[in-house]
């Protein structure tokens, strides 16, 4: 296990390093002159040249990369061109909202999908199973931004139970949570539909196995067999998909935060790209990538925790 963790940690760091290189390279290949964006198209050639020199844009790429990485390691991601504040400050301010959305969406997805998926498997080829399969088919087919708009129409405009968008800040926790319910629901619908299907098929596969027959022969209650014997054994494919889904939840927040006017990282990265705000885009894309890689790392650790047979091989 110790060796496994060491190997995975080295792999993790190598992946993050590679990501920073790719992000930096892509940002520098993309057309668009940050100096021109900052000063506007009416700026004089001298002013532009002065600003390029000040931003270090004339240095060789490797020098600029080294400077960026060096600063980043000390927590300094530069200053946002468009907001004129340190990038780290902006990111830290916006992060709680996006993480709440992503983690809330993931928790809701897992709970809903496990209950629906296990329920469908337990009622294989009965009405409950058909119902879950039908609903999940619709859930998969509906894009999350459209689901978001339908939710707003129904719960905010028509029923007026929840706010249609915006975020009141964390000082009023009840209002904050109310503001997050619809965005989380919109993110959850698609993800839970996919995960419920994965759960169902994985559980069905496990339910045919001999040890489930043993559990039945021991007269255990149905629910105990499902949750104590079937689910843990069905978990490996489920955890794999959850790991992948967390990545798409993070990118999903970009769309959802724009639909609901939520001041999170997703909306920030959208605006940063539109404004050619290079330091901000670099920092955000790197952050998203690091989050995804971290989740994949956790998924690998969870595999070993679930299945003792993997520990011997790990």
């Amino acid at each position: 296990m110790g060796y496994f963790l060491l190997r995975r940690t080295v792999g993790f760091l190598a992946t993050v390093l590679t990501i920073t290189m790719v992000v930096f390279a892509v940002m520098n290949i993309l057309p668009g002159d940050p100096a021109l964006t900052i000063l506007g198209i009416d700026a004089s050639e001298q002013a532009l040249a002065a600003l390029r020199a000040q931003l270090g844009l004339n240095d060789p790429v490797l020098v600029r990369y080294a400077a960026w990485i060096g600063d980043a390691l000390t927590g300094d991601f530069g200053t946002s061109h468009s907001y004129r504040v340190p990038v780290s400050e902006l990111v830290l301010e916006r992060m709680p909202l996006t993480l709440s959305l992503a983690i809330g969406g993931m928790v809701a997805t897992v709970l809903l999908a496990l209950v629906l998926g296990i329920g469908a498997a337990a009622n294989h080829r009965k009405s409950g199973d058909w119902g879950v399969m039908f609903l999940s088919q619709i859930g998969i087919a509906v894009p999350s931004f459209w689901a978001a708009m339908l939710l707003v129409l129904l719960f905010a405009v028509h029923l007026q139970w929840l706010p249609p968008g915006g975020f009141p800040g964390w000082s009023d926790p009840v209002a904050a949570v109310r503001a997050l319910i619809l965005p989380v629901a919109a993110l959850t619908i698609v993800q839970a539909a996919v995960l419920a299907r994965v759960t169902r098929s994985s559980a069905l596969e496990v339910m045919r196995l001999d040890y489930v027959r043993t559990a039945r022969a021991m007269g255990y209650p149905r629910q105990r067999i499902l949750w104590r014997h079937v689910l843990p054994n069905a978990l490996v494919p489920i955890v794999t998909i959850v790991g992948l889904q967390f990545a798409s939840l993070i990118t999903g927040t970009i769309v959802i935060e724009n639909v609901f006017y939520l001041p999170g990282l997703g909306r920030l990265v959208f605006q940063a790209i539109a404004n050619r705000d290079l330091p901000l885009v670099q920092a955000l894309v790197t952050l998203f990538a690091v989050i995804v890689v971290t989740v994949n790392f956790l998924v690998d650790v969870i595999y070993v925790m679930i299945d003792p047979r993997l520990k011997a091989r790990a």
């Binding site: 001999d210 014997h229 679930i306």
Partner: peptide
Amino acid sequence: VAMIFQEPMAALNPL
């Protein structure tokens, strides 16, 4: 009434 089965590997919950 209790029952034991043919494949002892497969009949035990591996986890």
